[in-house]
Design a protein around this nucleic acid. Structure first.
Lengths: 328, 328
DNA sequence: ATGAAAGCGCTAACAG
DNA sequence: CTGTTAGCGCTTTCAT
């Protein structure tokens, strides 16, 4: 393997000079710079980034913690974050927790081991305090999860408000038996949504029905299965805040099969404005997320922090909005 | 920062012994091991993995090169590969090329820089020879792309055969005007599919219609748009090999809107057996991929190779099969 | 503008 | 079983 030392020897300069050339350091004479560059090319030298990383104590890697990549929202989110990281010269390391607390904790140790320069949490089963304890003083930022923001920076959607609006929309149409689906109810963002759901009922002095709060519903299949249960007998439930467009698509499939008319007999509102919401008949009314803006701001903020630029602590809330189509 | 040396000093042993304890090396007396472990706990010591990696010349990172993560097939594939890598103690670094040749070439330099222990290609715009040149002797493995296998190991589906079958299925129903969609026709796997499509026609002494070969069609929206064009006037085209269930769903949406009956007036066969194929009405006939098996074999193979275990060069072909539902 | 030298934290012969 | 020693390849003072 050819090292910086070989280059130095063959260019009649010191290692330092080669290092300077590599780092594009200004104080090098053109003459030596050219010579060094030539030798580098001749020997087909490539710097050993492991050594560099070790020396500089930087991995140029940012971790991203997600429940599962095979999920339309999270794959979009990771895609977007990964692109932003790449623009800033960082690699993205994906860590799936499969909503398993033990696996989540494991991931945090990578930070302490210095295998990652920072980490982005997109979903968590732990409390802020617990996370802070696991990650110590290492750089983390929450994205998507509605944390308080006492221990780290937070970028998230106005989940509570927008679900309040969506629920109110259904309530205003005279529906009283409305369901709520969540992929993992123990998560801060889902808790926020649930609060919005309940408050919309409270505001109108209506009771929400606890039996209509469904947990662990996140895929098309989940939506289909839930629909099959719900639509089995006399139709009681009148609408659902589905939590995702995929679940909404599954519910619609089940409804169509049972000849239940949407939205006349049953309303559904999805989430994320995923293209699938355009492919169903009727098309899914949904809520737009703000993945693009969020990931840009967040990666910008994070890389600045890594590079020591002071960043004020931040909790940034993005405004999701309802997109009315045909299913409500 | 507390180092191995601090632990050694405080435990009255040498650095080597501490290192041995850390590595779970057998030849350490219980007495010293206990002492060391105790001191480690007291000082809350965490090994610096950057130093370890540098020393051992291993990053414990495997790169995965994909066109775009926000894509149902690739996010499933990455999810599965990432899980397998994690089981073997490797991290997964995602690299999106957005089907851009320059970006693809950039990614290969990471291998030469030793930023990655190996790389998995899932899609490429370059020829095998070009890739081999870019990656030199570094460890790469192709997954999903139907390469020859002269320069690296290949794990892929029997794309050609299975599309031959699917096309034959449509032809046997008496359809003669069949279309073919591809996300990126320049890619080996899509070329293989196209060969299967053409050969099915040839076998029955039928001509395929070049106007019905559509490129750059990969999303639901693409499917919807294509459908709108196709279904505008008198319906000429009688069926499509859609290349993905998402495209199929888009086509079906457009057809439904125009009151075109599927499969009576128009047939479509998807690909991947994604849950969305269950949510459409009619449900999409599709082709199963073999993501799970492929990623297991492939990561197993790759990690063995990284660790120096001899592995015979390999081209493993998996059998995709047609799943008949309601759209053909 | 350049070079000498120190050292990052760890592992792995090797010798005992 | 344990300690000594010699680096890994690079960056970064500190002199000059």
């Amino acid at each position: 393997m050819v090292t910086i030392y070989d280059i130095a020897r063959l260019s009649d300069v010191s290692k330092s000079t080669v290092s300077r050339v590599l780092a594009n350091h200004p104080y090098v004479s053109d003459e030596k710079r050219l010579k060094v560059e030539q030798v580098i090319k001749e020997l087909n030298y490539v710097p050993n980034s492991l050594a560099k990383q070790f020396r500089q104590k930087q991995t140029k890697c940012i971790g991203i913690l997600i429940p599962n990549l095979d999920h339309p929202y999270f794959s979009q989110l990771v895609s977007s974050i990964s692109l932003e990281c790449h623009k800033k010269g960082y690699k993205t390391v994906v860590h799936q927790t499969f909503s398993n607390e033990k696996l989540e904790r494991e991931v945090y140790t990578l930070l302490r081991n210095k295998e990652l320069d920072g980490m982005i949490l997109t979903s968590s089963l732990l409390s802020e305090e617990e996370i802070a304890e696991c990650t110590q003083n290492h750089l983390i930022v929450a994205c998507n999860e509605d944390f308080q923001g006492n221990y780290f920076d937070v970028f998230c959607l106005n989940e509570e408000d927008v679900i309040f609006e969506a629920t109110t929309n259904l309530l205003n149409k005279g529906l009283t038996k409305i369901g709520f689906c969540s992929d993992n109810i123990d998560t801060p963002s889902q808790q926020a949504r649930l609060r919005g759901f309940i408050q919309a009922h409270d505001k109108q002095k209506l009771n929400h029905n606890k039996e209509y709060i469904f947990n662990q519903i996140s895929t098309i299949e989940d939506g289909i299965t839930l629909g099959e249960q719900l639509f089995k007998n006399d139709l009681e439930i009148e609408g659902i805040i589905a939590g995702s467009d995929f679940v909404a698509a599954g519910l619609i499939k089940s409804a169509v099969k049972k000849d239940i008319k949407i939205p006349q007999d049953f309303s559904v509102i999805g989430f994320d404005n995923h293209p699938i919401s355009l492919a169903t008949t009727p098309q899914v009314s949904t809520i737009c997320n703000r993945i693009k803006d969020m990931s840009q701001d967040l990666v910008d903020h994070m890389t600045n922090k890594i590079n020591g630029k002071k960043q004020t602590p931040i909790k940034k809330i993005y405004t999701g909005e309802i997109i009315i189509r045909e299913s409500n």
